[in-house]
Amino acid sequence: MKKSVFFAAMTAAGFAAGAAAAGTLDDVKARGTLNCGVTTGLVGFAAPDANGEWQGFDVAVCRAVAAAVLSDPTAVEFVPTTGKTRFTALASGEIDMLARNTTWTFTRDVDLKFEFTGINYYDGQGFMIPKALGVSSAKELDGATVCIQTGTTTELNLADFFRKNNMDYDPVPIETNAEAQQQYLAGACDVYTTDRSGLAATRASFETPSDHAILPETISKEPLGPLVRHGDNEWGDVVRWTLNALVAAEELGITSANIEELAKGTNRPEVNRMLGTEGTLGEMLGLDADWAKRAIMAGGNYGEIFAKNIGESTPIGLDRGLNAQWTDGGLLYAPPFR
């Protein structure tokens, strides 16, 4: 008797565990908050400000998704992850999505069973070095001590780069960007290597950024984007199309300033479809008609988010480069909303 109860409880628990794997969208709605994995702190991309509010380019993606799904851009629980812990956090369900300067690679997509829902920053790996060392090219780095974040693609690219160029180096493995910064500034390593955007962001937080140079070589392609667990396509669609909405909004000239106006209806069908005055796109996603409007209102369109967090007017000062709209010669190209 007792035994059968025990077994029944066990099977029930088993089914419950199985069921939890799907339906992230419903989970998020029921929970009322979005668990979003971000960095442990990289100013401009994701870092808490003086008031403890998370700010940044990656953070904005989380907020847009939360606004679309929960109608509240602040309903986000930010979970800081390191290069090492991020994938475990996502795979185990601790976070619903990961927006952490994460490079879209074959193995992460296919073997680690994740689904990249787009690219929010086209990047490449670079090297930062104190100007005092008088190095002007990465080809002159033979014998250097290099700080490198473990568990990243940059760790593998670094090994490839030095092997290809027949040079030696001494890797100093490091867990977080903050540690890397500390070691680099103390001179425990000569060079710090990671995504160029990360280097720019790190350098901007130095006392004298002008003492440090980012070498001209870009040694890899690092398409960075948000990702979710493989197999939950509904949830993947929500994150993918939220990001697409931000990108398309810039292309279509929808900004946080004019969106209220445009949402009353325009004579441009695609704008109307996106903002929900025409068609049922929101419903198809399992959301309401205003989902994209809320996502854009959370922090503005892609261009606004870029300019506010990492653009040329910020200390980080990144130019749009590859991350310009395709109409401006960049790579940003959102599929049509229809």
Binding site: G14, A17, K113, E155, L156, L158, V172, G231
Partner: peptide
Amino acid sequence: MNLVRNLAEQGQDISFRFLGEPAGYDIN
């Protein structure tokens, strides 16, 4: 069993084949 089933649900298995593959990273 729970472990194996959950892994299977995520499309993963337990395999030690990776041990024979090139590591790709350097050690100091």
